[in-house]
Design a protein around this nucleic acid. Structure first.
Lengths: 206, 206, 206, 206
DNA sequence: GAATAACCGAGACGGTACGTCCAGTCTTGAA
DNA sequence: TTCAAGACTGGACGTACCGTCTCGGTTATTC
């Protein structure tokens, strides 16, 4: 993924700069897109608007990103990389509990708005949905699956656990609240979810 | 909602239609919008496109609908009215099981695509989200709540059931698959969900 | 000219109302058109605007006038009938002098703005120009010709006077100022015109 | 006037064209406007029509011209520059005679229709009238004044000549015929005008 | 230490759709 | 039959962005 590889200076590190890209411009674009989304909503994010706010030429954006959603996808990937990695503490149930709390909080923040907006856009654009899965949803899901799989291996979860069904039962309600009902996603809500889905043995909070 | 009230001939019945709206045009618009969404996706639905396909002037659309999402909302409300009413058979668990199967099937059809598209759009436009709740999500949720409440009253469900949490646990995974993971929503999936959420006493399928 | 015949109540006077036209509506329309022209200029005169201001339905206007310029033409004809009739005092030169002064003043008033606007519109619309000539310019010109002809008959003007050329030499500069240069059309200007065109024998002002 | 300045290659010569305008598009627009006026009249000239005929985007027109009349004004200025410059042969009376003949002919041609249409539009739109004066009528009048002034200086015309009154007496009738009476403007008509206004000493034709 | 090649800002360009205004036609119900 | 009211098709308005395309200017290697 060209627009993702040279995080900071890594590009210059080894294999000769592929073609000196202006890092400053890249960051300005990501920030501008992020800000516009927070301030004016998804519809307020336009290539022209990003360019104007970032002090960058439209062409510079088109050179590196196929569309505005790819810009947002980049910001999401960078943010999620720092905040949405499933933990690995040894206790799978604890991991799940913390991950869901974390997810709920993330969704409530600006960065999470990007995620929701991209899910929204994926409903409108099948091609976009595909790259969204390839770049974010797929890898994230894999990490989540691994988290549960560790619990199965350790015996903390039953050996016949259907990992996908369980993940949907855990994450589904969280996103449902965020995307559809608009209700608050509190730690109480996610903790209870964990208890109900993973069984009463998982009751004791950390 | 003005554009919804005079279903069939009620308007002419007694109430003296204060200003005769062209029913033919209304239906042509709804159909055109529906067709365009199915054929070309949400982005392919434009006021100009609807007008052209429906053989109607743009102004006629703007006269009765504030925006294209309101047109789609009208088609959704009409469709859902026929297909998504929670049943009331006496057995709440059976009702839920059937409702979820129904919901899963609806989401897979053209009419359901409208629902998903509107949920998507709601992520981009807060004002739209509000009317979406007022016109569809709110009433639908109320009907769902009533379905569960009947089970509590009848003793089929425990008296301390948290209706909202339970509904989210039931519907959340269904929408999560449809909106996010893209996985199939099969009857097996929803039946299992019912069993897990409402307890093993609800296991026996109808 | 249907829209002209029943000035005030004359329609009811003799031959039984041809088909009871609402005189009130007719007058309201003419006034509304006049006012709109004065307030917002020719472009601000629209059928919808006239209808709204006159408290009249659009259809009522279309029933009696083919277009908005016909409405203005009606107001012009009524106004000019009262103010722009060439005088007949016995002295043709005096008549011309007074007529030109009168014309200059008329052009400066609201009613005259209608005349200028219609001349303007005639440049844009050949069909309109034709009815304009038939209804106003032609008759007015005939009256002007008669005024000069009286001078020729009385011997006040030379027998070989080219009436049309002379009229153009008299009226032309007045309209040129009003339509093109935008300069003021003063009595001094028109008096001098008369002197130069009709000869020094016409010098003495009244 | 920005849209007029870089005639030919002067822009590239030294001044460093700050932003390359597409000359081809500019000319296509002027031609399209001209053609539409001749074919369908002023009302038939629309921005959309110009754009379609010129093979140009509407935005390109709006970028360089505030309105359709400014487009026509540009074509007029270019045409008049070539055909309506008052001559300077040494004999002011001859100059006037030729200029009026020229003017009469110009008005009869397509290019002259633009002039008449703009005078017409000026009656409807005060702001437009102002730019019309600034861009065309004013400069043209100045050139005409200079023509007469040369005659005064040379002694060909009396020293007490009122230049403005004389110009109105000369041009007024010409425009009056074109704009109002619709009569033909022949060389005989203009020659006679010159004789009458500038005196019998100016009689002998060239 | 030039030459050169990709970058970058700026923004003009052909387009599509927007939401608005008004034209001119029509239909309805009251007077 | 006229009238007020106003819905209807239709066309143009002027605006916002889209994605493509030059322009000159600026770096930063590469010869």
């Amino acid at each position: 993924m060209a627009q993702q590889t040279d995080t900071t200076a890594q590009g210059a590190a080894k294999g000769r700069a592929p073609h000196r890209r202006n890092e400053q411009a890249r960051i300005a674009v990501l920030h501008a897109a992020d800000d516009l989304l927070a301030e004016r909503g998804f519809a307020g994010v336009t290539i022209e608007g990003i360019a104007a706010r970032a002090g960058v030429a439209k062409q510079t954006i088109y050179r590196w990103w196929p569309s505005k959603v790819d810009v947002l996808l980049d910001t999401l990937v960078e943010d999620a990389h720092g905040q949405l990695v499933p933990p690995d503490t040894g206790s799978a149930v604890d991991d799940v509990r913390h991950y869901l709390r974390n997810l709920a909080q993330f969704i409530g923040e600006d960065a999470g708005k990007v995620l929701l907006a991209l899910i929204g856009e994926a409903q409108h654009d099948a091609a976009m949905a595909e790259t969204f899965h390839a770049r974010y949803l797929g890898p994230q899901r894999d990490a989540e699956r691994a988290m549960l799989a560790r619990g199965v291996v350790s015996g903390e979860l039953p050996p016949d656990t259907d990992v996908d069904q369980t993940l949907d039962a855990l994450c589904g309600p969280v996103f449902y609240r965020a995307l559809v009902t608009g209700g608050p996603v509190t730690p109480e809500f996610t903790d209870r979810l964990v208890t109900e889905v993973l069984g009463p043995g998982a009751t004791q909070p950390k």
